[in-house]
Design a protein around this nucleic acid. Structure first.
Lengths: 345, 345
DNA sequence: TTGTACGCGTTATCAT
DNA sequence: ATGATAACGCGTACAA
């Protein structure tokens, strides 16, 4: 790895001239430029960006803290982050907390959790990142972030009420509303719900969307048509009988797994999905398209969440030290995948 | 963000002393140590690791180039990388090439591809990473890596014959062999194969494993029992009839999607999987466990591949400039997931 | 147009 | 035990 000094010496100029050429600061004759350029080519010289960073104080690097890479939502979110960062020529320092592996799925209740997050943030800071995006594994309230960070921070797929930290979330309310409106447009009026866990933000927002769609469609909201599962397939299976007794013509499952469970039970009870009864899911997981019949579901805008989070953080970074960011929440819309699990009645 | 100078000034000592305290270089009285420590605490001082890196030339950072984050194998591989790197206190600079988005799925035939990879490698180098792991989206021969890199490089989930670059791959041969041996142990002799694309490494290796298992089980290899699909579900569906005509009692599909397609066709033909006929898949994709009956399949050691790749690269980094690494290939074993799709006959 | 000298935040060497 | 100072590789005034 040659340094700028060596390039200067070999081309017979000073380091200043080489630097000027690299950074296109004019003030250099065409003649010497091509001579030096040639040496740079030949030596395969790349400026040491660590030294550059030390001098100029911009690392063109943002830190991304992922709660757990292997949770299905994360890769797409990170993909969105990298897409925008590539456009803006920022690189990514990735931290994978591996929270699901280290703790149970209630890691965020662990007292060690907050300390871990903060330690990683300070590590990132010591590497001079210009901003930090925290990517959660599922939506909830996050309040373990340090106050008064020297660089902007953004929370993706969760939210925080901490000052100056914007959040980017899925518009679950819009997604559920759109999906249920679709059901209504297909003639369904008695629409059962197999909800997720009761304390989940996703559950609450999707339920609101369901209620609003009903209201806008002039359908009375019947609380008895809502039953709670636990996001797992068996809970979809178990709760189907109850809704059938209520004579629903459609079942809105709050994720695709539970919809799969409902499929299983409906199959046993000889009710043909997409013919005798409608089922819709949420998330658009890979298996949704492979169910029989293919499941109509609401896709999560994961990529867009990551993309939006990067947009926000880079915007904040450009503003530099100016007015503190608001702790706003940006919602990104879901997009439906209409397949064959909904019949018209 | 305070600097070491400020800490020195405030504690009334020289920067050298502060540095010595931070790095535990002895030679400092207990008295001044605690005084300085206190200032460090109060000021919330963290050493600037960019400056430290410039001086000491170890960034404790490795570069990870992912061909496409959103391909199913990648998150687990990266997770494995991060696990080992965390233990060794290395951080990760992530590059997501997004190759599947930018090109077709034959990106590696594009002439731009090689240039892109090399550009990213030099970017990483300029950030002073101490090693680079290249994570491919599927196994094949990779030969676009630059020669004579100043830091070690390892290829994960593919291989290269380039000098000094070790590779880590799935032991497809072992996986297929184990799976087919299991079929044989369950009494099956006429075992049909729905293979992947003919030019895929995975296909070739898995076919070898199949043949070896047959040989070891004293079963004649009948080439007519092997048919080629394209990894997609419909190709599993299409090829099932052919194998049925050949009177196979078991079908080895080279991935879970094609196994799903076989399920579909078998269902139409009233052949009960796990009762009248056996089906096995490969990869252990999420949907495998949800098929009816749950699919017996061979799991890919993705996490372990990442882990192993980190082990190798960090080992190489420790060896420093010493003897060039061999361009060896490490194979990591697959692990079977026995479920309910194989009957005993 | 080109070169000199300094500073960025550290660590390391060598005095004191 | 502590401090002054020279690197590390680069960018940039300012001088030439």
């Amino acid at each position: 790895m040659p340094t700028i000094k060596e390039i200067a010496k070999i081309s017979g100029v000073s380091v200043a001239t080489v630097s000027n050429i690299i950074n296109e600061k004019g003030k250099v004759s065409e003649e010497t430029r091509i001579r030096v350029q040639k040496v740079i080519e030949e030596m395969n010289y790349t400026p040491n960006s660590v030294a550059k960073n030390l001098k100029t104080k911009n690392s063109r690097c943002i830190g991304v803290i992922a709660e757990d890479m292997t949770v299905f939502a994360l890769p797409d979110i990170i993909d969105g982050i990298t897409e925008y960062c590539e456009k803006e020529d920022y690189q990514i320092l990735l931290v994978n907390l591996r929270l699901y592996k280290k703790f149970e799925d209630t890691y965020y209740q662990s007292d060690r959790y907050g300390a871990i997050v903060q330690r990683e943030i300070y590590k990132l800071l010591s590497k001079q990142v210009e901003g930090i995006i925290y990517v959660a594994a599922h939506e909830r309230l996050i309040n373990v972030l340090p106050q008064q960070l020297p660089v902007p921070m953004v929370v993706a797929y969760s939210y925080t009420t901490q000052k100056g930290i914007p959040s980017v979330m899925v518009s679950d309310e819009q997604g559920a509303r759109e999906l249920v409106k679709y059901l209504i447009s297909m003639g369904h009026r008695r629409i059962g719900v197999i909800a997720g866990k009761k304390d989940s933000m996703h559950t609450r927002s999707r339920l609101e969307g369901y209620q609003r769609a009903l209201f806008e469609g002039n359908v009375l909201y019947d609380p008895d048509l809502v039953v709670y599962g636990d996001w797992e397939r068996p809970s979809g299976y178990r709760n189907t009988d109850y809704l059938l007794e209520k004579n629903v013509t459609a079942i809105f499952c709050m994720n695709d797994f539970m919809a799969g469970g409902a499929y299983d039970r409906l199959d046993e009870r000889k009710r043909k999905v997409g013919k005798d009864i409608a089922v819709v899911g949420y998330d658009n997981r890979e298996m949704a398209g492979y169910e029989k019949p293919p499941l109509t579901t609401m896709g999560l805008p994961l990529h867009d969440i990551g993309y939006r989070a990067s947009e926000i953080i880079i915007e904040l970074m450009k503003q530099d030290e100016k007015a503190e960011a608001e702790s706003s929440i940006a919602y990104v819309d879901c997009k439906a995948f209409i397949r064959d699990s909904v019949n018209r009645i």
